[in-house]
Structure formats: structure tokens, C-alpha cells
Design a protein around this nucleic acid. Structure first.
Lengths: 141, 141
DNA sequence: GTGCGTGCAAACCGTTTGCAATCGG
DNA sequence: CCGATTGCAAACGGTTTGCACGCAC
């Protein structure tokens, strides 16, 4: 099913991995690229994008598609959900005791589908944004 | 807060609205554009995008951001969720009796956040895709 | 040496925008 | 008439890709 592919240990691979692991804010590929280039200028944007996408395909990290922003990458690969701040875009991990598939069984509209999982994303305002009173109170979610 | 803006009734507005309302598959802006141009060639893509975005901002329709695809538009504005077919991208409406905010209260990780709502998206395989045996059984959700 | 991995720039794709022309009120 | 709305094409932003070079093995 999968071709045998010999993987090489390159400097950029180590750097991207290190930098990404040191970030704990569910960064987008662009954010990782910037962080990488701050410490080790000269690494190509394409390489960062490629390495992250590759790691995600290998299941080493998670590629999140949240509602408002770009793709985010997540070190935590075990099943969990996220809260997103609608003001600053901050992302945090969330654990719930929800049983996906049981929820789908009780839902109206899933009948034709073989439901295999679900994404849950809470939307709100993080503490910092609430403290600076400028955030819009209207919640257009 | 909002300027008084006199809205005009234009031909393209009526056409886009009619075509969109006759589609029941949560189309993307591009899909609406194609459908519109099939029946009434000559309407600009920009106009279709503008009209849909405008209708969404006015709250007349919903602009969905689902995980894998482009923005989709939804005639149903009342609160509900969606199931997405991971093979063909088909979208269907789902109703659940979930209480968003109570779910957030019981979730670990939302503490810092003022949670205002949540998006739930079931992922699976629709009936048609299951019938044609070619769909990948591996579920990478 | 072989060929995977990289850097660069260009392509990509959906979407948005600037501007002049047009048409509704 | 006037200015909201349109069409066009160009710009946009994040991401991907083609290709020649360079480095890991």
C-alpha cells in the first residue's frame, strides 16, 4: 500500500521539528516558518510547509482545520477538541467526555451517512482579549 | 453602528438568489456561480461572490466553514450542525439536542475562555459513496 | 555515486478588491 | 441625475509544485 521510502535526516528537518515542538500555540505553517527563520535564517518556506505536511501525513502531528483561520498544526495527536478565541485566534486543547458516535446516532440528519467521527470546536473569547475591553461583545458565531 | 445603505433590486441579485435557493446541497460560491452562469450567462463571478457574502452578513443565509472544503452557503439560518462526506464532500444538515454551553462547562481546557458557542461537524461517508466500493475504508479523521 | 531533500520562484485556487461603466430609484 | 451595483482583471494570501542543485547515505 505504501512505497518504501528511505527518509533522510537533514538539518532543516531537525530544526523545524525542534522549533515546532517548542511552540505550544497550535501554530500555522506560516508561524512555524517565521519562528524557524528567526533562529535559523535561510530555511525555505516551501521546506517548512513540506515538512509539516509530511509529519502530519505520517501521523506524527495533527493538521487542524479550524473555522476562521489557516491550517494549524498540533503536537497532540490523541483525540481531543479545541477552543478558539474569536478575537485573537488563540487555540487551546479541550478534552470532553463526549461519545462522538453515540451523539451521531441520536442526531437527526445523519441517517444516510456512515459517521466515523466528528470535530467539535468551541468558539469564545480568551482571557487576555476579555481583559482589554476593546473586544466586540457581539458574537456572530 | 451601521450606515444606512439603500439597497437596490438588481437583476443579478434576483437571479443569484433564485438559483441559490433552488440548490439544496450547501453549495460553495463557485458552485453557485457555475449554476448561475448555466442559466444566465454573463453574470460576473465577483458579483456572485459579493452577493452571497453580503446575504451572509445580513444574516439571510449562513456561510459555513467546514473542515475540508471551501466556504459553503446554507439556506437554513437556524442553529444546526452538519455531516460531511469525506469522499465526495456532500453536506447534510443535522439536528441534535446537544447543549453547547453545558458541554463547554464540562470540558477540560475551556477554563480561560468565555465560550459563546460551538461548531460540530460529523464526518463520514454518504450512502452513494459507500455503494460504489471504491471509497477508501481508512478513516483519517 | 545515487537519488532524496532543498531553495527558489512561479503556479495555484478560492476569494477579494480597485476602478470605470452602468443602471436602478 | 446620483450613487449603489456591476464586470473585468488584477491582486491577494496561504499553500503547493516544477525544476535544478546539493547533500545524506
Amino acid at each position: 500500500m505504501k512505497e518504501i521510502k528511505e527518509k533522510r535526516n537533514t538539518l532543516q528537518k531537525r530544526i523545524v521539528s525542534d522549533v515546532f515542538c517548542s511552540m505550544n500555540n497550535h501554530p500555522s505553517a506560516g508561524m512555524v516558518y517565521e519562528a524557524v527563520n528567526e533562529k535559523f535564517p535561510g530555511i525555505s518556506k516551501a521546506t517548512v510547509y513540506r515538512l509539516l505536511a509530511e509529519a502530519a501525513e505520517e501521523g506524527k502531528i495533527l493538521r487542524l482545520k479550524l473555522t476562521d483561520a489557516n491550517d494549524r498544526y498540533d503536537i497532540t495527536t490523541k483525540k481531543h477538541y479545541h477552543v478558539v478565541c474569536r478575537c485573537c485566534g488563540a487555540v487551546a486543547d479541550v478534552d470532553t467526555q463526549i461519545d462522538d458516535l453515540r451523539m451521531a446516532e441520536n442526531a437527526v440528519g445523519c441517517e444516510g451517512f456512515l459517521v466515523e467521527g466528528c470535530h467539535v470546536e468551541f468558539v469564545g473569547v480568551c482571557e487576555e482579549c476579555r481583559n482589554q475591553k476593546t473586544y466586540k461583545t457581539e458574537k456572530n458565531i
